[in-house]
Design a protein around this nucleic acid. Structure first.
Lengths: 211, 211
DNA sequence: CGAATCACTAAGCGCTTGCTTAGTTTCGAT
DNA sequence: ATCGAAACTAAGCAAGCGCTTAGTGATTCG
């Protein structure tokens, strides 16, 4: 009841326009940032609500002013991350107009995002499984849209004769595996820049479809 | 002190040869199986020692007869899994004699192992990060050996002119990403057989090196 | 047989967990 | 100035955690 209302759409619950709304927004942002950091480097279950609160300079109870539960916080993070990922993929696709260039744009953007925002990406990809079934279902819908974008580019490329792909499903999966796994191994201390990773992975994608 | 001695080498701690040794070995096996199942589907931190004990039909305290701690159990699992993975990669490599066929053998075997033993593989790949620094270092050494096997095949293939690979490091990583990620998405309910996945991924590997 | 050693359990200790409650402060609206 | 609502905290509760202790019954050895 509280849960979906919390850190979501409602720009102003009442008719306030002053600083209090801004302060609340700041707190929500600080909590989410704190939770991203904590979940990404210790995992959802190894992170305590006290830990999140401390990172956000708040008392343990302060978390519950803005989020219904620790689970709710994970859900908000996970959903926001998935929506962001979908936007990135769509805008990459729309930046190009032939299947090969669209594929390069998508894989390159997606891979470099998984490096640059590896903390968020880890939550999106690996903490996802700790959501409740209902929350998981909602996020899964976004995930399927991402999958569809990639698959449709492959289908278009095969239809146009640009790609040679014997199994669309396997290749779609493989392309995503390639980019998703970046979030697992990337971290501070990795020398290669996110952009360089994107470029290299764009090339690998073309090889996978034998363009 | 207890930790490294527990589920490890010593075939018989004293000079026993009777059933008691066999019973202990069975219990260790049951506990490890239980822990693999639990860790793989709930994660290390979300799994309680009581949960592991219950799955192995034991009392909570029974775990500590065979393992020094929950952390120790994860370490044994993680190490065993890594050693097994290394053996698979090495024996795949040795089953073939040219770089292309070696690459196909390695990727194919590794991918189908990640599907067939996805529970163990998940622990190896994703729970690995929850080890203590010392344990992590020990396991990391095995991981580097796996990496070296793949890299050396790529180097041999480039040297022989069979492969066209601009960046050995990136391609080594990409090949592993491809196979490792199988453990993330594979599960009961996935129709494709592990063997079919192996075959498909062997082909993808050849594409990545433009053989 | 008797002693030692083993796997194993019932009970529980000290601590941390997610979350609540009751109350204080802050602040915009009247 | 006063009220109402919201953000926030100090304190703490019930439950669950990893792990220990004290003890039991079976097995092996001299």
């Amino acid at each position: 009841m509280l849960s979906t209302m919390t850190a979501s759409s409602t720009p102003a619950a009442g008719r306030h326009t002053g600083d209090s709304v801004q302060r609340s927004r700041d707190s929500v942002q600080r909590l989410m940032d704190a939770a991203v950091d904590a979940f990404a480097d210790k995992g959802f279950h190894a992170t305590s609500t006290r830990d999140i609160a401390a990172r956000a300079n708040m008392s343990p109870a302060g978390v519950y002013v803005h989020f219904a539960s620790k689970q709710d916080l994970l859900f908000q993070l996970c959903k926001r991350g998935h929506v962001l990922a979908l936007e990135i993929v769509i805008s990459a696709r729309d930046s190009a107009h032939t299947p090969p260039s669209q594929l390069v744009a998508i894989v390159s953007a997606f891979a470099s995002w998984h490096a640059e925002q590896f903390r968020t990406a880890r939550i999106v990809q690996y903490e996802f499984s700790h959501l409740t079934p209902e929350h998981r279902a909602e996020v899964l819908a976004v995930r399927k849209q991402i999958d569809a974008v990639v698959r449709n580019v492959l289908l278009a490329g095969v239809a146009s004769g640009d790609f040679d792909v014997p199994d669309i499903a396997v290749t779609t999966l493989a392309l995503q595996s390639l980019t998703i796994d970046v979030a697992r191994w990337y971290g501070p201390g990795v020398r290669r820049t996110p952009q360089a990773i994107g470029t290299a992975y764009g090339d690998l994608a073309l090889r996978l479809v034998r363009a």
